[in-house]
Simulated scan of single mutants.
Amino acid sequence: MAVFTSVTLDDLSSWIKQFPLGKALSIKGIASGIENSNFFITTETGEYVLTIFENLTFEQLPFYLKLMRHLADRGVLVPAPVANIAGELVTALHGKPASIVSKLDGASQMHPEPVHCAAVGAMLALMHLAGKDFPLYQENLRSLNWWHETTPKVLPFLSDELRHLLCAEVHYQDAFDSTPIYRALPRGPVHADLFRNNVMFDGEKLTGFFDFYFAGCDAWIFDVAVTVNDWCIDTATGELDVARVRALLNAYNLVRPFTTEESVAWKPMLRAAALRFWLSRLYDYYQPRDAEMLTPHDPAHFERILRLRESLPVPPLTSDL
């Protein structure tokens, strides 16, 4: 992630004494993304990831960390949050909320084949089912309300054509949000940011999902759409790769069958997923924050994806296996 808050080894050595992890041996900033300050740390007991939260509050964080623990206890491959000696999962570092989680094995698969997409689809379905009885609730903080709040902040920077595209899609999603189909969609905790760089593989073996800090409660099919819009595309054009789409959807459907309502909502949700990330990238591009290492993403990538999802047919949720 972009490093907004600096942490030295001396800082870490003092702070980490409250955790049952032994002496801090090393710390290295992770330079990807733009939301939190992340670091790989090594202690006498192993390797971990330290996150300092730049936007989320002490009150919001228990939802994410307890969700990760809940999922891990039910067989979903996710990092395990580490509690301090007082049993707290979130403590202050440099005046900001911070947490430590276990480090997953493997590496991100940035050039996925259908076999990787199938593994992601199956684990995503397992994650959705495992979260059904999670007792805490928090809405998806980057859904419709946020779109309404953020759109006016980026409109002054856009051409007339892009302003029209953005406002028309928000209006379309408003209308779909009010339909009985949308209200009937199965819901629960979602990852909401399951891109290639948030999943680890060892060869063809999936070793874990991570970075749950955009998670919230939303329609499960929206989570599937976010995932397909990253894992199953030609990154140069945004066009869907049908073989990868089918691998992911078929694997998901075998674990948790899609509903009729989800089939109807599939194309609107692919559009919603594209809109969500186009808008967030527009905001981060035009309203940047100071950071030591900042890697803003190109908004045009999800603009292209949104145009394609609006204009072209998409593979259906289910097909003959």
Rank of each mutant, 00 (worst) to 15 (best):
N36M: 02
S26Y: 10
L129R: 05
P257I: 12
S14A: 11
A2F: 12
L254N: 13
L206W: 06
R74F: 11
D241Q: 13
A118P: 13
E59Q: 14
A80K: 07
K66V: 03
A291C: 10
D298M: 06
W231Y: 04
A24C: 11
F53P: 00
R256E: 07
N253H: 15
R304W: 12
S280H: 03
H171Y: 03
G238K: 01
F176Q: 04
E54M: 06
D177E: 12
S14R: 06
D10E: 15
A31F: 14
F214P: 00
F176Y: 11
D241V: 15
Y182A: 06
D223G: 12
N250M: 07
T42K: 15
V245I: 01
I305S: 05
S26D: 14
L162Y: 07
T207E: 07
V255R: 01
I305E: 00
T179M: 14
A251S: 09
L9C: 03
R196H: 05
N198I: 09
S319M: 06
D218H: 09
V255N: 01
E292N: 13
F277H: 01
H128S: 03
Q173C: 03
T260K: 11
G203P: 13
A130T: 06
L321R: 06
L249W: 11
Y286D: 01
R281P: 06
L25H: 08
L25N: 11
A192S: 12
A215R: 04
F63M: 05
F176C: 12
R307E: 09
D284G: 05
L21I: 07
Y172C: 00
G29M: 10
E47T: 01
P313M: 11
K132Q: 14
L67E: 01
A83P: 09
A83E: 07
H301K: 14
E239K: 15
I233W: 02
E35V: 05
A118V: 07
V78Q: 01
L270P: 06
A122C: 04
S32P: 02
F40W: 13
T91K: 08
G46L: 00
H164N: 10
Q287G: 09
T237G: 04
P156D: 03
N55I: 08
E303Y: 08
P296M: 02
T227A: 08
A274G: 02
D73Q: 14
H171T: 07
D223C: 10
C117I: 13
L12C: 02
L279K: 05
P186C: 09
L279S: 03
A86W: 10
T237D: 02
L65K: 04
D234G: 07
P62N: 04
D105C: 09
G95I: 01
V76C: 05
S26A: 14
L308K: 13
K66H: 08
V314D: 12
S178E: 15
F4A: 02
K153S: 04
T260G: 09
D290R: 15
R74Q: 09
D160W: 08
I34T: 03
I41V: 12
A236P: 07
A31E: 09
L249Q: 03
R307C: 00
N36L: 02
A83G: 11
H191L: 03
D177H: 14
L308I: 10
L144G: 06
Q173S: 06
P316Q: 14
D73W: 09
N198H: 13
I85P: 10
T179R: 12
E59W: 05
D193G: 01
P315Y: 12
H301V: 15
H148F: 14
F176A: 02
L89Y: 13
S319F: 13
